[in-house]
Write a protein that binds this DNA or RNA. Sequence first.
DNA 1: ACAAAAGTGTTTTTCTTACACCCATGT
DNA 2: ACATGGGTGTAAGAAAAACACTTTTGT
Lengths: 252, 252
Amino acid sequence: MPAPRAHDTGGTAPEGYDKYAFEPFAVTADLAVLTIRDGALHVLLVERGQQPYAGRWALPGGFVLPDESAEAAARRELAEETGLADVSGLHLEQLRTYSEPGRDPRMRVVSVAFTALLPNPPEPRGGGDAAQARWVPYGETGPLAFDHDRILADAHDRVGAQLEYTCLATAFCPAEFTLGELRQVYETVWGTAPDRPNFRRKVLATPGFVEPVPGAARLTRGRGKPAALYRAGPATALHPPLLRPAPEGRPS
Amino acid sequence: MPAPRAHDTGGTAPEGYDKYAFEPFAVTADLAVLTIRDGALHVLLVERGQQPYAGRWALPGGFVLPDESAEAAARRELAEETGLADVSGLHLEQLRTYSEPGRDPRMRVVSVAFTALLPNPPEPRGGGDAAQARWVPYGETGPLAFDHDRILADAHDRVGAQLEYTCLATAFCPAEFTLGELRQVYETVWGTAPDRPNFRRKVLATPGFVEPVPGAARLTRGRGKPAALYRAGPATALHPPLLRPAPEGRPS
DNA sequence: ACAAAAGTGTTTTTCTTACACCCATGT
DNA sequence: ACATGGGTGTAAGAAAAACACTTTTGT
């Protein structure tokens, strides 16, 4: 097997060179699909039916097909695993790529990981194959297959950080939501809740974060005063950021 | 060519299956190497000697070898392109992965892109092969090969954003530096300079950002009062962040 | 003497934080 | 009546922004 040459410097095989000349890489898209159920953060997991890691739970994912991007593969997998008809509006974002040589014992697999945020968690229907799938509370995911524990932890870190300086929180909410529900997103992901009156002011003072639903539409959740409804606005960045109460160890 | 099956659900070929059964992917590591020369942001580019994009400039990079991670490949390429003996302490960070099917006309290439920050720009020595390499001022890079314009723009965005909420700026500075030099990093990357007295206070008030060099070591750069020297501290995060003066369009 | 850069001080304004308090609804 | 969550007000404190001023060097 010849050593591959850098694609920008090689001078031996100008155009029609042998694609199969060197050790092949497989590229997969893996998903950390997060949602909030009953006020707790949940992750979508699938049970592996074969070796390696048979019987262990893993993040959903699959091979990137020859004619699709990793993003397209991730969105396709997301649709298959969740059974949602319209997956086009959902928040899907590239997390990072995991490429350690030994991460899959079968062959060289490079995984492009994504985070997906769902508003109303549907019952998972177990993918195209017969694999079992379910929502698992974050933190109660036993040891996962491959390096998926690490990927999941990275996804959680990222989402938590993004809540601080982006308008990402609305991705966890349905089309129309109350500010209380929005605040619960922060509380659920961070573990600590921002002060309610101050949160309200901050959100409303950020242009484009949320837009009021004009009709006197209101809604109650359990009991209490009916809350005004809002829709996600066009803004994506949060300037200045909404910092989480620093649990002492943060600056470092 | 059989359609590949998801690695978590496939049930046909348990372990020793044919690695060469489907369309192979190549995986490369591409680098956006940034540095500051004469007060201006520069990028390391290499000139392509062959098709496609022969004669065009491109980001340095190369194939990930079968037994190394993308990070290792990036660090190896960085050493080769810059000619630096010790590349171990340099800041290298994964940016994102580019996987659009048509990005390389020759075959399916998935690129894991990295940003690297250099303090003292060495004269590039043109890689292992005879490719020409040079520092190009950011903004004066004509159209690059492949999708490298996009990668470079993404890298610049990322670095600019990271200056706000991390201690990344020290990665552009040599081991010992003055606060004026550190401030120039912000000015160079952002295009706008933070207020000098306020910048000073902010940096010094953040524990672990910089540490004074205890000896009365001082140094002048051009003329003016000699400045105290500092070393990069152990902190990586910046809480609260150092926000850049918002050029109106930012919140959105 | 002057320019240029470092370093200190001060004031103004803004934002955050922490509460206290009232409102509307279900039980 | 009371619990529960929504919504408003406000005062103390912290931080950021703006700017004046002194210091120390090279030319």
